[in-house]
Each structure stands twice: as structure tokens, then as C-alpha cells.
Simulated scan of single mutants.
Amino acid sequence: MARFSFLEWPVLRQFRSSDPSGRGESVVSEQTRNTVPRTTTADKVVQSVCPYCAVGCGQRVFVKDDKVVGIEGDPDSPISRGRLCPKGSASEQLVNNPSRQTEVLYRAPKATDWQRLDLSTAIDMIADRFIEARRNHWEDFDDKGHPLRRTMGIASLGGATIDNEENYFAKKLFTAAGAIQIENQARI
């Protein structure tokens, strides 16, 4: 930290400079002059979509050394035209939060402790349970012989932390599997 100097007071800098109104260079500190935005040092800029709601605001993701260093609204986006809500502006914290869960945890029925699973094992467990629930609860026809072709053993309750394309895919997947109980905050 630099030593304090009375000559660097903004009022004195104002009288010494060509800024008599005190609205320009005289009120800018040395620290402010040397401050550089994180986004100017990024290795690359990637276009993305905000993960929070179904609006699909465009984002510019700034990456340095394979780490997200900042996220801004994308001015080229016809949806948001460079603007983001507070949640979208803070979405950089989704990937850089030290408390973010990065491993698959599983708690068996009636167990008290969580165990770590590799991703392929967890996906296989989910797929097996999905297929079994569909098979065990499939309804071809109702009591009057009307075709149903549905399952009541599968339901989907989604949030808005995935974008429109992922929501569309989830809706198509569950509908194709015969599920009719499909709800999502994004309201596809």
C-alpha cells in the first residue's frame, strides 16, 4: 500500500489539474486507474444461455485458464439484448462455488450415511429403476377398453435451472416413456 500524501487529496488534485469542476481525472485515484476488468484478461469468450428460468437470456462467459472468471449479458442476444437479472448475473457462482457438489452421492433405503458412486453406476441405477417402474405400472387400456398407453409409475418434477432446450428434451423423453405427470416451473 502506498504512503499517504496530503498532495493526493482529491480537492488538491482538482486545483492542480485542468479539472476545475472535480468531475474528471482529479477525482480518480491511482488504484482506480490501475484497475483492470477481469473480462479483459480472459483467454476466450463463450456464448451461453442463462440456466435459471425459461426466458433463455444470452450470456457471455469469460474463461481464463479453463476457469470461468466472469459472466455478462450477451448484447447479441435477441431475447435479453445484453441484460441479465440478478440471478443471471450471479450465475458465475454456480461453477466457482467451493461448496458445489461435484460427486454423485447415494443413500440407500434406510441407510444413515451417503456413499460416493461413479457417474456410470448412478446412471445405470436410474435407468434400471425407470424401466422397472414403467414396466410395473403400465396401463394399456382403461376399464371400458379405451386406449391409455401410459404409466402412472413415473412422474417428472423439474426446476428452471435448465434451459429451454433441455426442458423440451425432458418433456419429450417423459412423454415418449408414457408418463403423463410432468410438471416444470418453466412451463413448457
Rank of each mutant, 00 (worst) to 15 (best):
G159S: 11
D143Y: 13
A179Y: 04
L119V: 14
V68K: 12
R83E: 12
V28I: 10
N136D: 14
W138Q: 01
R116S: 13
V68Y: 08
V27C: 09
I180F: 01
D142W: 03
G70F: 08
D163M: 09
Q185I: 07
D163C: 08
F4V: 14
A133H: 05
E183W: 04
G24L: 01
T32Q: 13
K171P: 01
A122E: 01
I71T: 01
N97G: 03
F6C: 10
L119A: 09
L84Q: 07
E92K: 13
P51M: 02
I162V: 13
E103F: 04
D142I: 09
S120V: 01
K171Y: 09
E30D: 09
K171C: 00
V55H: 02
L12N: 13
K171H: 02
Y106F: 05
H146E: 12
S29F: 00
Y52R: 06
L117T: 01
P37A: 10
V11S: 15
S120W: 05
I123C: 14
N96V: 11
V69N: 09
R23F: 09
R129M: 01
T175Y: 00
I126S: 03
R83V: 07
K144G: 10
R107M: 02
D140M: 03
D76M: 08
P51V: 04
F130V: 00
M1V: 14
E139V: 14
P37L: 06
R135H: 07
A2G: 09
V63R: 02
P98W: 02
Q31E: 15
Y168T: 09
D142E: 02
